[in-house]
Each structure stands twice: as C-alpha cells, then as structure tokens.
Design a binder for these strands. Structure first.
Lengths: 116, 116
DNA sequence: CAAATATTTCAAGAGATATTGAAATGAGAA
DNA sequence: TTCTCATTTCAATATCTCTTGAAATATTTG
C-alpha cells in the first residue's frame, strides 16, 4: 500500500495511541509498566522486573520488547544488566490523547482527575 | 483457582484496566470510541458508527461487542436501530487509574494535562 | 582464558482475536 | 402479512500474540 489517498486509514496519532494502548493491555506488561513509573527515571533492571512480575526472564524480555516497540520505555546498559526506564514524554502524549478525546464530549469526565 | 492467597494474581483494578486498555487498543475500536465520546450521552447508531469507521456492519458489531464487554459503552434500542453511548464513569475510572499510576513516579507528567 | 551472570533471541506450539459472508432476528412500513 | 431495514449471530479462516525452553550473546569475575 504505497499511496492510500482514497482510503480512510486512521491518522498517525490514532495509530500510535492504539499501539501504546495495546502495549499496556496485558497484565504482565501493565504490572511492569507500573513498577517502572514508580521507580522513576532511574528505572529498574530486567531481573528486578521479572521478579516483580513473577515471570521467566525470557517471557519478560518479550514483554519488554513490546513496551519498547511502543516507545513507552527505554533501555540502557549498565554492566551486565539492562536498565529499563519509562519514557515520560510518551506517557504524557498518550494521556493527553485520551484526555482530549474524552473532554471533547464530556469535560466533566476529566475535571478533578489530576490530583498529583 | 478457588483461593489464590499464595499466587501473585494482579488485583482487580489492574485486571479491569488491562481489559479496558485492550478494548481501546484497536484502530477501529478507538475510532468508534472517539466518535462516541464526541457524540456525548446521546450516542450514535451502529450504522452511523460503521460508516464513520468504514467497516462492515458485522465487523463493527463484533468490535462493539468488545467495547461493551469492557464496560466502556452501553446500548439501547431505538426502533430498529441500536444506539451506543459511552460509559463516562468507566472512562473516568480508566483515566484515573492511568493518571494515578503515572503520578506516583512523576507528578510532572500529569501536570497541565487537563485543559478542558 | 574459563566460569558465572544477566539478558536476549529463536523456534514451536497453543491460544486468542480479527475478518468475512451468509443466515437469523426483530423492528417498522406497505 | 409480506417486505425492507438495521443489526447481530454464526462458522470458517486467517492472523496475531503468548508462553516455553533451549541456545546465543555480552559482560564481569576468578
């Protein structure tokens, strides 16, 4: 599909949002993602995440690949471990997309949501 | 699995959030959901949604079933059409879950997000 | 260098989801 | 009643996604 001027392909933000939502739409990945958000920019090693989520290293690794592919996390190497950290900008984008969607129809849905 | 005191099954909110995220994690469904949010409580007929998302009636119907199963939308019958409407309470719950997760690690991610 | 550690990659099988088109259902209109 | 319209249900197929375990890779330590 080189040029699809006549098709109704969803726009890029919608596509990206659905990829990111899909990345979070798995209990193991959501658990891992929550742990990373709690950990903050420092991040956590893959091993620590495997333990937190109670899954095998290889299973975890494939889930981390999905989160990475969605751009929700990043990795860096530290010695023999790999440290994963949340990508806050991506999270902000995703939340912004959802909030904007919901506010269009119902501002009251969002009001009072952010109580940081 | 009647009693899983020793297992590390994710808690109910996490499970519910992952089901709802999964329901939104599809371009057709996300498009449909956006249209419903924009339409507001009045909702939209299945036919209108099929046209908006450019998919067949039967394909749309199965996607609506997923959104319904996740509790993100409700249906009512009006003559021979079925009108779908967003469930704002469910949306609020989901956004609240995400925002709380992200605020735990990084309050600044959420700040200034709600500009309704 | 050899051993140990942390993690990823790969391949295979299982399971879940998506897409189609045809048939069924349930109104309302003629 | 019979026709048409709006929508769902069903069954079949196709396509992803998950999970596993074994093997590969990279890095530090002895």
């Amino acid at each position: 599909m080189i040029a699809d001027a006549l098709s109704t392909a969803p726009d890029a933000p919608t596509r990206q949002a659905s990829v990111r939502l899909g990345a979070l739409a798995h209990e193991t990945r959501l658990t891992v993602f929550r742990a990373l958000m709690r950990a903050g920019p420092e991040g956590l090693a893959a091993g620590a995440l495997a333990e937190a989520a109670q899954v095998s290293a290889s299973n975890l690794s494939s889930h981390l690949g999905v989160l990475l592919g969605a751009g929700l996390v990043s990795v860096r190497r530290d010695g023999r471990q790999r440290i994963y950290a949340p990508d806050f900008e991506a999270v902000r984008e995703l939340l912004g997309f959802l909030v904007n969607e919901c506010c269009q129809g119902a501002p009251e849905v969002c009001g009072g949501l952010v109580k940081c």
